[in-house]
Amino acid sequence: MNASVKDWVDIGAAEAIPLRGARVVKAPGGDIAVFKAADGSVFALRDRCPHKGGPLSQGIVHGHGVTCPLHNWVISLETGEAQGADKGCTPKIPVRLENGRVLLLATALMEAGA
């Protein structure tokens, strides 16, 4: 595949993500959801709910979690694990904030979706 030379890919300014919201990044391995929590911290997960593949980027963000829009599973932004009684995990994508820019780990973008 067309692997990037850099380890980290710049996907845009952190400002572009609404607080308590998310944006989608189209990537070779499938969509990635990049979240910004109320405290400003940024997380990235595969945009696929471990339940039935719901787009987590479209959910409601609260604390360090997101509620899936399809059937209301709550997924931890920190670990990708489903919370409470539900079981399942969504792959986490390493993310870095640098000078207001959001960077994702290039190799993680290549891996096929969960």
Binding site: N2, V9, I11, G12, A16, I17, P18, G21, R23, V24, V25, K26, A27, P28, G29, G30, D31, V34, L109, A112, G113
Partner: peptide
Amino acid sequence: AHEFAPMADLGFQHAAE
């Protein structure tokens, strides 16, 4: 507008799409 466009498009799509 942010709701309706991806933040970044890294150029190539997942085959299964």
